[in-house]
Design a protein around this nucleic acid. Sequence first.
DNA 1: CCTTCTCCGACTGATTGGCTAGGATTTAGT
DNA 2: ACTAAATCCTAGCCAATCAGTCGGAGAAGG
Lengths: 162, 162
Amino acid sequence: MLFSTRAEYGVRLMVELGRHAGDQPVSLNAVAENERLPLSYLEHLVAKLRKAGLVESQRGARGGYRLARPADRIDMLEVVQALEGAITPMECFHPEPEGKVSCSHEADGDHACATKLLWTKVHGGVAKALSGTTLADLVEFAGAGGDGPPEPDPTKAVAGAA
Amino acid sequence: MLFSTRAEYGVRLMVELGRHAGDQPVSLNAVAENERLPLSYLEHLVAKLRKAGLVESQRGARGGYRLARPADRIDMLEVVQALEGAITPMECFHPEPEGKVSCSHEADGDHACATKLLWTKVHGGVAKALSGTTLADLVEFAGAGGDGPPEPDPTKAVAGAA
DNA sequence: CCTTCTCCGACTGATTGGCTAGGATTTAGT
DNA sequence: ACTAAATCCTAGCCAATCAGTCGGAGAAGG
């Protein structure tokens, strides 16, 4: 399992907010009911999203949450990172400012850490997949599958693209 | 953390075996010392690799492990899958025979699972990164980048007897 | 002032990750 | 035949994380 339910629930929450763009804020309760997710757990998740500056909150009655930016300017790398923490393939993997990567074992001596090449590739693949997707993409995808007529399944094309 | 140390240790183990291709089998003890990893933990990992048909074992004194195939015909997707189990981005994510993907929530009704698109992309990215890399690539990388030449010196580690 | 809602921290039960222990079995060398 | 060096197998342990609950303190609208 690459990610935990935090990412899953959190992304679904974001999509739900994205569907009500421009409207009044959406209460967590509404989201929980729509998505059949535990309210009190969502509270924790939305807190992370808020601290990351991805959603804004309005307290009090008729309050709730809304996106801090238009959905097409929110890329999913940000979202998933906010929910799951820094996404690294491995414990020893430390991405550095200038795109380089350091590895904890390298000090051990014998030879370069053989896995560095592999984890760098994996990290790149995930980062590309996430940052190449905006929340708007997901909202549109969800909308198409739900209210509107069925469209050709985009997941098939991507899955075969390896 | 995308992967656990199982993948890390297991891959390093495989690389170590790949460095001694054609030679006598390498004992786990030697690998453990070279890589400074706990022997008894490696035993569990190598068992998975053996069951997956990636390494062969020779029991008894002077026994050990060797690759079941040449390193350039072992792709890392197989290796990581053997170690970590099926690699899916999310609990609800079930890759199906024909490249399609099913999602547990889809039965829930309201609308298509919005996250499916995202996880499919992520899965594709990881799979591509892993299956596009062979063990030989890592062996070469480790040899080239290391401060020591990839010169095989198996006598040193095992040199207790005779 | 009461209801709705966000916010916050503490707590919990189950699972997983990383690792150790102990032994059974197989084989090479003497 | 004996012994040392290995693989193999099962069981269990401890700490951390996951997924979620609970109770309550604020803030805002009616």
